[in-house]
Design a protein around this nucleic acid. Structure first.
Length: 425
RNA sequence: GGUAGGUUACCCAAGUGGCCAACGGGGGCAGACUGUAAAUCUGCUGGCUUACGCCUUCGAUGGUUCGAAUCCAUCACCUACCA
């Protein structure tokens, strides 16, 4: 199967330039690139679509290049942003790139002999460029009229409150410059990115044609949306990160398990490497018995395996089974220990639970499950609070050392999904 | 620069002297039903308090009044029309 067929059946092609020409070109191995802006020290779920697309290219024999935006990250892409960005420091940027590099290495194969992935930092070819040279060599090929017409720029220019700085306005030129350098020095012929990157990608196409007289291609991937209209990759706790320090493997697993029914098949196509047959089978199972959620489980396991490895995934699955499995009575300490550290954990001084103990409302606030003591009382009155998986109806209840499981832990739950293990020390 | 209107809780928005911690909608949280869904229904949604109640909040500051989101003054910001 060709890469285009692969991307097409997965629904991963939003748009591409010169479809016929691209199809012809992709018959033989091609160098393809995608940029990642290191705005944080970890990638998040939203970055996965283009990143996994690179991997798909690699699996089918093409040469992927991941570009860490050391230079462009200093500027900030206005695409999809309604407000001017805060500039980040050079030191923070370098730290971010180093961290992101490690994550990239897990998903792309840098070792294979045939078509190893490469990671390059665009500051390598940008930092020594003089401003006047850049204006003369690159800037001359751009028409401000066209740049202004670009959706992301126009939206910001029309918004009198935020506006757009010259800095961000120039972003497009830098990304076009990247493509040109990669086309010239790395024989790169294709750039992929989210559909919000269309303008930036085509700008690079134009520059390559004018500077190098070289025809290159662009392909955009659909921006992911949720069936309920919310933004993909966000939870109440914020973005879903790949870094286990930011998003625990348990939460990561839960994020995918909680996919909306209407989204789950699409997500399987977008995010997993399961074959068309396998996904078809899951789709059939899902249609026949959605309650069993085979598709959700397959999705969550596949992603967790990919990002965190199968050993860690097994723990996350086990923790999920325990937490959502009902009563804790008779549970073995070793089993319970599996969820400690998986679910969010808070510590408390053991002495506070001596004697009369600590009011449950205070413990709820301490654990971060309720915003205030008043709110905690309302949560209890509403029947939403469980202690050690048993519903607690009394708002005057205190938690004492008698409530400790194995002399150490108290399992608090608010609602169906919000767990915190409080550990006494 | 002139004129008119506006600024209320997470967002939108009602309230034009006491009945206002402030109608309604959205969002959020929780409950029922379920499958850790969706849809639907119910409750909650400033803080402290077991509770009575107390405290803080309607752009900012000051004033009038027994009493101010509401009236007055000044300032800041926004919107529309005119220049």
């Amino acid at each position: 199967m060709s890469i285009l067929e692969e991307l097409n059946w997965r629904g991963l092609v939003a748009d591409c330039t010169d479809g016929a020409g691209l199809r012809k070109r992709l018959v033989s191995p091609t160098v393809v690139y995608c940029g990642f802006d290191p705005t944080a020290d970890s990638l998040h779920a939203g970055n996965l679509v283009p990143l996994l697309a690179l991997r798909r290219f690699q699996l089918l024999g093409h040469h992927p290049i991941a570009v860490a935006g050391g230079a462009t990250g200093l500027i900030g892409d206005p695409s999809g942003k309604s407000q001017e960005r805060q500039l980040i420091t050079t030191e923070a940027l370098e730290h971010n790139i180093a961290r992101v590099r490690i994550q990239l290495a897990r998903l792309l194969d840098f070792e294979t002999r045939e078509n190893p992935a490469r990671l390059v930092d665009n500051s390598a070819w940008t930092q020594n460029v003089f401003y006047l040279d850049f204006l003369r060599d690159i800037g001359k090929h751009f028409s401000v009229n066209q740049m202004v017409a670009k959706e992301s720029v126009r939206a910001r220019m029309e918004d009198r409150e935020s506006g757009i700085s010259y800095t961000e306005f120039s972003y497009m030129l830098l990304q076009a410059f990247d493509f040109m350098v990669l086309a010239r020095d790395y024989q790169c012929e294709l750039q992929i990115g989210g559909s919000d990157q269309w303008g930036n990608i085509t700008a690079g196409l134009d520059l390559c044609r004018r500077k190098l007289a070289k025809a290159v291609f662009g392909l955009t991937l659909p921006l992911l949306t949720n069936a309920d209209g919310t933004k993909f990759g966000k939870t109440e706790a914020g973005a879903v990160w790949l870094d286990p320090k930011r998003t625990s493997p348990y939460r990561f697993y839960q994020f995918w398990i909680n996919s909306d029914d209407r989204d789950v098949i699409r997500r399987l196509k977008y995010f997993t490497f399961l074959s068309s047959d396998e996904i078809g089978a899951l789709e059939k199972q899902h249609a026949e018995n959605p309650g069993a959620r085979h598709a959700h489980r397959a999705l969550a396991k596949a992603l967790s395996d990919l990002i965190h490895g199968s050993a860690v995934t097994a723990e996350a699955i086990r923790a999920s089974e325990i937490l959502f499995g009902g009563r804790l009575e008779g549970i073995a300490e070793s089993t319970f220990d599996e969820i400690v550290g998986e679910a969010p954990t808070k510590e408390i001084e053991k002495s506070k639970l001596d004697g009369a103990g600590l009011p449950l409302v205070e413990l709820l606030v301490h654990a971060g499950l309720s915003a205030s003591k008043g709110q905690a009382r309302k949560d209890i009155q509403g029947g939403g609070v469980n202690v050690n998986n048993i519903r607690e109806a009394s708002e005057t209840r205190s938690v004492t050392s008698n409530d400790l499981l194995f002399g150490k832990h108290v399992l608090l739950r608010k609602g169906k999904k919000n767990y915190v293990v409080v550990t006494a020390r």
